[in-house]
Amino acid sequence: MFSIDLLRDAVVLGVLLGCFYAAVSIGLSISFGLLDVPQVAHPAFLVLASYGVYLLNDRYDIDPLLAGLMLAPLFFALGIITYRIYYETFERRGSDAAVRGIAFFFGVAFIIEVLIIVQFGVDQRSVTAPYIGKAWRFGDLRIPIRQLVAFAVAMGLTVLLAAYLSKTFMGRAIRAVAQDEEGLRLMGADPIRVKQVAFGIATAVVAVAGALLIVVAPVEPTLDRVYIGRTFCVVVMAGLGSISGTLIAAIILGVAESIVLTLFGASWAPAISFALLLGVLAVRPQGLLGR
């Protein structure tokens, strides 16, 4: 039955889960939050990265996190190509870019799903690493080490990206392009190139996040559909484009899911992120920590 201890455990696990959600959402926080690209294929890219990591881990026994890092340059290139196509076909022609953009990215997501199914089948896949399957115990609270790994990587990513965006020239240009494209052009920077790099970085981060995804739990080809809700929920709740906001929003989502899981069972879990998302959109569309 329900007890304070149970609730405490739920909150602790929820915070860890939330940090993991931050890691998988942070790329979207750049691509959708800052650049206004309706990247609904973000979760599909995430799952694609997971399968890439699976392949490297399964064939060559490479550590999943290292494999994620190895995939990052590839995903950086993938991001640049994706943005280029999006820009040339939609953004440049203006008007209903967003509407057709969503359709486009949904198409991309479906293509990725099927390619994964064709290559790997519909079964769940997982990776092996020394930290997977073990857990630390604090009294009767059991914390899987893989969750702690996810927590640490998420923290690292958040701090690194926040620093990059505020300290480096390119990072500041990326934040500027979101607010004042014309101003940036006057300063002599090419906003399209800046956006392209930003989208590349966002996608490179997805490669690392994809490694976390498969470290935390086994993946299947259609896993991206649940994560549409989770990632967009986090990014919208954070207030578009805020990196620190992303972490906080993700933790709110993680704790909410964890508590609902404890109280009502797993069958209600998929609706939590979407309900939160809907609530935020209806009540505070600029996000909880809106800019």
Partner: peptide
Amino acid sequence: LVLGVMLV
């Protein structure tokens, strides 16, 4: 797959 490709 056809759905995705046609859409794109």
